[in-house]
Design a protein around this nucleic acid. Structure first.
Lengths: 136, 136
DNA sequence: CTAAATGCAAAGCATTTGCAAATAT
DNA sequence: ATATTTGCAAATGCTTTGCATTTAG
């Protein structure tokens, strides 16, 4: 993935801190602020939390970063991809992306509510295969 | 709706403040902290925000209050009902409940992810019928 | 009468802001 | 050379806590 181009396309200056934030997001997929900070602190000991917040916000504004709100948990961030849904393991907290066919669901909604739809946020919770087995 | 019984069933003392919080939740359906506070302040001028927070938290713990996290907006609270989904109007911010048949969706998820499922949080965004018309 | 709830003020966190110094273009 | 970004410290804002007083059961 070309992080430099990603930043440039959004008219952001390419700083080492920014490159590393994007790289962490890309590598880990779903991360919260604290864990971005921890990981970055290793490479940039002088790094400020304020810098992370500023960058997260600017990237959100430019829409190439999305915040995922999860019931009863902290928000995590991910690089914006095509629309997809999430499943969270209630035990080990792993979050995975899933591509669902939402046509049938959207038809139901439009029929029942007469809304016109654009975004959706679909988060399921349950047990991942590993944790399912551990529990037996 | 019998607010007194609702509180008693959860072993909470029936105070005037609590009755009014529950009544507001029931009346308005989806409300955020500030708007609960504003509405209550009229009836109880001495009311403290801390009391609202304490009550929201205790009701959440007892699971008869649910927090609804909405992408890019403040959380709202609702009395816990049977599982249902939500649609939010991006223009007027109205939130409506909707009962969807999730069977087909859940089958997809189980097939694709091998998770076992329990909760789900499904929030769609779009334009409500009124705002759709206004925009023409 | 006792345990729980309220209201106030203070404390605690998370996030944002202002500004001088450093850096990218 | 200029505008943006960083990092620090201070400020803000939301939520929680501690405690004395009040209230419900």
């Amino acid at each position: 993935m070309d992080y430099i181009r990603l930043l440039q396309e959004h008219k952001l200056k390419v700083t080492p801190q920014r490159l590393e934030i994007v790289s962490i997001l890309n590598k880990y997929g779903h991360v919260n602020i604290d864990s971005i900070y921890e990981k970055l602190k290793i490479k940039f000991p002088s790094l400020s939390l304020a810098t992370i917040y500023k960058n997260i916000n600017i990237m959100k504004d430019k829409l190439f970063l999305s915040e995922l709100k999860i019931p009863n948990e902290k928000s995590v961030y991910e690089l914006t991809k095509e629309q997809h849904s999430h499943i969270v393991c209630t035990q080990c907290k792993v979050i995975i992306d899933i591509n669902l066919d939402l046509n049938q669901l959207e038809n139901q909604i439009i029929k029942l509510s007469s809304f016109s739809l654009n975004e959706s946020s679909i988060v399921f919770k349950g047990l991942c295969p590993k944790c399912k087995n551990k529990n037996n």
